[in-house]
Design a protein around this nucleic acid. Structure first.
Lengths: 268, 268
DNA sequence: ACGCATTTGTTCGTATGTATT
DNA sequence: TAATACATACGAACAAATGCG
């Protein structure tokens, strides 16, 4: 924890306490109380991203610039950037720069959608928005999104279609406070993925998501919308999406018709 | 491509050709024809792992030793090791060493099983082996595993139970050539995950897997084994597992009863 | 078409910190 | 306490990709 042999003032954070001397060595798993320099830089970068200093798709300053700004070596900046790139927050491109990851680019369109067709390659699906209303958050939704009892949410219902066949029925809940002015018309008018709209129009960037997947039987209304028989098996995908700092900002309940599509996953 | 300013003979591979001079710069995407040093080291390490020079759970030589062996700097070795650790092939432990990843350790038991209970924490499930027979590979299985028409496979059928309730029905196909002498008795006798047995007894290490997930209706026989009504929705998880070098060595078709469990996935 | 400046990627070397035995 | 191993941090140099003049 001592400053490197170079100049003084090499610390980028207030000051980390030395690891607690003495006492039992039963270190609580969630109490490092200090962190390596590159993780501090990583936290500072994350904070700047949160504050919108660099917006999705934009380039960050070059490595030497960041090194100078934080008063650390280029290698340390690089390690922080690599970690953020590994987490999908940044994208590095040799010879061009380091960019803020975005959902709006064609190359990585539908970053979070794991549905693949049995035959052929994945193509953009058609969207049909069925509903978009503002309402008091149901208890379960409020709990998942960390909202208070009185807060309201936007509920969006939409279909994704491959050709003429409906494949996905999504119900989406968003904190109304973060998405003021979002309407079905704006959703329908936007070209590109919904998460791109969230980034560009509302400054909400989805960084990570957790999904719980089950098989369920189609209810009558769901079956009608998806064009399947009532009771047909459907994939239920409950997704909770997070923005910077691990804050949940979207709950999504998707029903996937998996007759000619499947959910793809890679394990390692 | 020139040797670094240090000593001579700094190349660890026969000799990489210089990037094709002249000609259109339309570099074919699948023809790098050369690679950075650390990737060459990574390939050499992978080869040694394939050959069993270090077995699952064992420690590799230390970084300085590997650096000396491959005639590169410790930093380059480190980058290769980090890449393999990121891929899940190795596990690094500060102060102890770098170890070959294994499916047999309690800490990471069931590396590939993403099934979680709705309530409580994940616990080891009971296994019940229903069948283990040798047969000619069905066409579909042969194709997935890259086998010839005449090759035979072992087919294993088993249940996983949480408490008394069956939750997973697995059908597993393995190339018989790689798993000579595998019987239901040996499977039942082995403590720990099946992949641990494959590692320890047959030297087959599962590195990676692809899964295709769908919702299907339970057939009569499947429903009976899982204790659900015929036609109940079940999660169908088709897994193709790979060993070193991307060689497929296991096909698995799992039916998950997702009433009180779910398939967990993280996106980023 | 060519070269130049910029930016990330790779590689080396060295020193020090932290965890484990 | 000492030895060993991985982790962090610094600095320097060159390679490869990109974009611009």
């Amino acid at each position: 924890m001592d400053p490197p042999p170079g100049l003084c003032c090499n610390r980028a954070m207030p000051d980390a306490k030395p690891p607690a001397a003495g006492g039992a060595d039963a270190a609580a798993p969630a109490a490092p109380a200090f962190s390596p320099l590159y993780q501090q830089i990583q936290a500072l970068l994350t904070r700047s991203l949160t504050l919108g200093e660099w917006k999705p798709g934009e380039a960050l300053p070059s490595e030497p610039e960041l090194a100078q700004r934080f008063k650390v070596s280029q290698g340390t900046v690089r390690k922080a950037l690599d970690a953020l790139a590994a987490a999908g927050v940044l994208v590095r491109r040799q010879g061009r720069g380091t960019f803020v990851a975005t959902h709006a680019e064609a190359q990585v369109q539908y970053r979070f959608l794991r549905l693949m067709p049995d035959q052929g390659v994945r193509e953009a699906m058609r969207r049909r928005f069925l509903d978009c209303r503002r309402q008091r958050a149901p208890a379960e939704v409020a709990r998942a999104l960390g909202l208070g009892g009185g807060d309201s949410v936007l509920q969006i219902r939409r279909l994704l279609l491959a050709g003429e066949a409906p494949v996905v029925l999504d119900d989406i809940w968003l904190p109304a406070r973060l998405f003021k002015g979002l309407t079905a018309e704006r959703l329908a008018a936007y070209r590109g993925p919904m998460y791109g709209l969230f980034e560009a129009e509302f400054g909400v960037q989805m960084i990570r998501a957790d999904e719980k997947i089950r098989a369920v039987a189609a209810r009558a209304d769901e079956a009608a919308l998806l064009g399947v028989a009532e009771g047909s098996p459907l994939l239920l995908v409950e997704r909770l999406s997070f923005t910077y700092g691990g804050r949940p900002v979207e709950l999504r309940r998707g029903l996937y018709h998996t007759a000619s599509h499947y959910y793809r996953n890679e394990l390692n």
